[in-house]
Design a protein around this nucleic acid. Structure first.
Lengths: 213, 213
DNA sequence: CACCTTACCTAACGAATGTTAGGTAGGCCA
DNA sequence: TGGCCTACCTAACATTCGTTAGGTAAGGTG
């Protein structure tokens, strides 16, 4: 019997290894996460990981790719099903992206925190896929702009700033707290769409109507 | 004569070591940056670094602290000199924070990208100082809210989302490009204050008046 | 039953890591 | 001049790293 010292742990499938590794990488970063760390989190010895992956880089690459995959799937699902007008459509997309960060494992969160200083070999392998996700959002923003819904002096910058705001949530938002992801998406989109400066009359409604969707 | 093999390089002062180390850490992360990496960037052998710092952790801690110091100084300078009303005051603060990220060495940039998964020892040593910087912004936002200038349903979240947007600029903004940091600050504050959704009439002015300040 | 595959193991490899010991050479001050 | 300090060096240390070699045992299949 393939003796399992950590008796609670299920067999070390590829998925399980990636799950644990992604969480560790999210917590400590890629370089600071050793194969022995990953192995012990899975309940296995380091050498055993090489039956499932050829190298540490392959694990890392798989995690970053899965992170994109989660985001792309979420995005496409909104595109496929939504019939909403501009602001609501954006709200659905923001909610979907937050979902990618919090609701489908640590992959997307690990991706957005680790990608920008990944080793060049890995970075280069991932960047095309990542660009294609960015292109989806760029396309969405272009559509919104062309239909006159979006009035930024630079659409790309508006999008990148929004993204920075969304991605930063993994550093401070607690999905188990009082606010739900729906609440958070509402707040982010309200801020993005209407602004939070007092010059805008549109805001009193939000303050009055409360958080829950 | 303290023979210097890299003849172009000035003596390895504490500051010079921190400069180079911060840049490396910004590029590759803390764990992936070795003492030998830092030493060779400075033009010195690894052992020589221990004449200036007791350990790698001490270097890292000094960098993160310096990153905060830069931000705090920038913030306090605005507070001390500005007499502006709400929106302009915020604009000055945003511009100051962007300045910290781009104009005073790699310290603040290294801080914001590395802090959240620093080793616990370092994290714990830094977190009080960082909290105090956050408290400055929280205080600013409270004042704006109390004077009725700010209308977010949750002021903290509005602030954190803004911060995420600002800090993300180090991943995509090129200060040597067409846009200046002044331009960028304008765009970020316009987006934050007025929103970029078409429902807001306030925007046509920006689209018309162009980017440069 | 014999045999293969799958999943794990122990043991070890060379390389890289942070760090220390101990030495050398120039500049400054008594 | 002699001695100390500063700034660097070479060499080595123990440890940890990613990775490989080779073995064992369980479960399925002929």
């Amino acid at each position: 019997m393939t003796t399992n010292l950590e008796s609670e742990s299920p067999p070390a499938s590829r998925t399980r290894i990636l799950d644990r590794a992604a969480q560790l990488i999210l917590d400590k970063g890629f370089a600071a996460t050793s194969m022995r760390d990953i192995a012990s989190s899975v309940g296995v010895k380091a050498a055993s990981l090489y039956h499932h992956f050829a190298s540490k880089d392959e694990i890392f690459t798989a995690i970053l790719e899965r992170g994109i995959e989660v985001m792309v799937t979420a995005f496409e699902q909104v595109e496929a099903t939504s019939t909403s007008e501009a602001e609501t459509l954006l709200r659905e997309h923001v909610r979907a992206h937050l979902g990618s960060l919090f609701e489908f494992g640590p992959y997307t969160a690990a991706h957005v925190t680790t990608f920008h200083n990944a080793p060049p070999v890995i970075y280069d392998a991932i960047v095309p896929r990542r660009d294609s996700y960015e292109a989806m959002w760029a396309g969405l923003f272009d559509r919104l702009e062309q239909q006159g819904s979006l009035n930024a002096s630079d659409t790309s910058i508006a999008r990148l700033v929004l993204f920075g705001g969304m991605n930063s949530t993994i550093e401070w938002f607690d999905p188990a707290g009082v606010l739900t992801l729906d609440d958070l998406a509402d707040m982010i989109v309200d801020q993005f769409w209407h602004g939070v400066g007092s010059a805008n009359a549109a805001h009193s409604r939000r303050a009055a109507s409360g958080g829950a969707r």
